[in-house]
Design a binder for these strands. Sequence first.
DNA 1: CTGAAAGCGCTTACAG
DNA 2: CTGAAAGCGCTTACAG
Lengths: 338, 338
Amino acid sequence: MSTGDRPRRPTVSHVAAEAGVSRGTVSRYLNGGHWVSPEAEAAVAAAIRKTGYRINPHARSLATQRTNSVAFLLTETFERLFEDPNFARLMRATSAALAERDVSLVFILAGSPAERRRARDFITQGHVDGVLLVSSHQGEPGLIEEIHRAGVPIIACGVPLGFERKLGWVAADDEAGAREMTAYLRSLGRSRIATIAGPRDTSGGVQRLVGFRSELGDDFDADLVEHGDYSEASGRAAMSALLDRDPTIDAVFAANDLMAAGALAVLAERGISVPERIAVGGFDDAAVATETRPALTTMRQPFDRISQEMVRLLLQVIGGEKPAAITLPTELVVRDSA
Amino acid sequence: MSTGDRPRRPTVSHVAAEAGVSRGTVSRYLNGGHWVSPEAEAAVAAAIRKTGYRINPHARSLATQRTNSVAFLLTETFERLFEDPNFARLMRATSAALAERDVSLVFILAGSPAERRRARDFITQGHVDGVLLVSSHQGEPGLIEEIHRAGVPIIACGVPLGFERKLGWVAADDEAGAREMTAYLRSLGRSRIATIAGPRDTSGGVQRLVGFRSELGDDFDADLVEHGDYSEASGRAAMSALLDRDPTIDAVFAANDLMAAGALAVLAERGISVPERIAVGGFDDAAVATETRPALTTMRQPFDRISQEMVRLLLQVIGGEKPAAITLPTELVVRDSA
DNA sequence: CTGAAAGCGCTTACAG
DNA sequence: CTGAAAGCGCTTACAG
C-alpha cells in the first residue's frame, strides 16, 4: 500500500488547462453548468474524465462557507440507540431524505458529557451546516443553547422543551394521539383505564399524558398512572405496580410500544387475558407491535414523514428562512390487544 | 432563530491583532505551542478567549491536506447493523479509541449499491484521512479497490478476502479459536460434533470451519456441517436440519453466538437437554451469550483490543508507515451450555 | 522565538 | 458566455 507517495490530485487548474478554458469556467461547470457554452461544457467534461478530477470539498467549503452536510445529533448512549427502534427508523428515513438532495449526513452520538463536549466543538467549528436534533429526553439544554448561539440551524424531532420558540421542530401530535387511543379504549366499554406514561422530561411523555387525562376528564384517576422511561423493563415494572395497586383495571394505555410489550409480558405471566380482561394500547407502531402476542393496537407515528419534514425544514433554515414548527397527525392501528 | 445574519466568525487574523502577534504565531500556538514564548502564549490564549475564536476546519484541512477524521465504513444494511451486536461493540470501542487521540469518526453505512457509490465519492473526495473497514461479508471488492486506488489508507476488521496483502487488517485468530472450542467439546467426551458454519464469503466463516475440521481430523463428517448467515434465524434453521439428518449428534459448534442462540431455541423446543444430550458452543461472547438458557459457552473475541489496534494501525498508515496485519487470540469462556 | 509571504484548491463578483 | 483576480482562513518553510 502506497501512502507517502500518494500522487498529487488534479485540481481545477489541471482540468482548465486540459480543457483549454479558465478555472472559472470549470468552476461554473461544476456548479450547475450555467453560463457555460455547449463546447466549453463538453471540453470540461472530457477533461474531468481524462484527469480523474475530484472536487476538493475543503477548498469548496472554505470558499462557499458551506459544507453541504448536516449532523444527525443523538444525545443518547449506544445502549439506548440499539434498544429503541425509533432511532433507527428516524436515522434511515433521514438518511434517505438527505441522500435525495445530495447532502451528506454526519451521525453524532453524544451520550456522555465528554461526547457532548466533542459534539459541540465539532458542530460549532463549522463541520456541518445544520443539525437534526433527535433525542427522547430534554437532554442537554446547555448543548442546544451553545449550538444555537453559534448560529448553527437546528431542527428538533419532537417538541424541544424549553426551546419551542427558538428552534424549528417537527413532532407527532402526541396529545391528540393519546386522546384518540383513550377514546378508543372507552369505546370498547372500558372504564378503569390506566396509563404507563413516558418520561416527564420529554414532550412526548408529557403530552401523551395530557391527552389521556383530558380525554378522561372527570374519570381521570391519578392512582392509575405510572411513569416509565420508554424501555420494556420499565413497562413491566409499571404494569406490575398498577396491577398490585388496583385489580379493577380493565385497560392500559402505554406511551410507547416497548413499554406496552413489557406490560403484555407481565399480563401473560399473571395469566390475565388480553384483550378480554385488560385491553392494551401502545404508541409508535414500532416493529415490536406486530411481534407481541396478541399483536398490539397502537397509534402510528409517521416517522418517514417526520424525517422528510425535518430535512426539508432544516435545509430551508440553512437557506435563510425562518424556522417553522410542524405537527403531524398520528393514526390508530387496531390489532388484537384492544 | 437568526440565520441569514450570522455574525462573521473571528479568524486567526482577529486573534493575532488582539494578541499583538502575527498570524503565524497564533497558528503555532494552535498547533502545539512549540516555538512560542510564554508571553506570546498567554497573549494568544487570552485573545482566543476574548474573541471566542474557533478554528475553521476546512481552512486547516486545505492547508494541511489532512482532515483529522477517519471513516468507519460498514458495508451492511440498517437491518444488519441493528441485528448483529458485534457491530455496535466495534463502533463504540473504535469511537472511544479515536476520541482519545482526538480524531473524529465519520460513520458510513453502505448497504445498497447507491449508498456504496456515495460512500466511495465521499471517501475518495478527501473527506477523511483513512477508513476502518468493518463488514462481515467480503462485500464489495469494487468499493475497496477504488478507495485503495485513490490512495486512501484502509484497515480492515477481519481478514479482507482478496486483499490480504494489500490492506492492513486486524483479526481474531478464528482458526485457532475454532480448534480450541472443538477440542474442548471433545474433552467433554463428545464424538458426534456438528457445526453451524458462517458464511463462505467471510474469512471468519471459512477459518472457523477450517479450525473445526482440522481439529477433528479423520473424525470430520461433512454431513454434520450446515451453513448459516450469522443471524439467529439461520441458526435455528441449521440446527433443525442437522437434527433431522442425524439424531446421534451430541455437540454443536456454532460459528457465532447469535446462531448458537437460535440452535438453543430449537433444542429447547424439541425438548433436547443442553448440555446433557447436546453440548453447544458459540463464538464471539456477545451479550446474548449470558442471556440464553443455559448460558452459552463460547470463544471470546477481543473486540476492544481489535478496535484499538485498528485505530493504532490506521493512524500509523496515515502517518506514512506501511500497513501491518495483526492476529489476536481468542479466549474460551465456559458457561453452562457445554 | 517571530513575522512576512506564499500556498492549499476552490468560488464569485466584475468587466468584458 | 468567459477570463483575471481577489478572497475564503489556515499553515509552513524561510529569513531573521
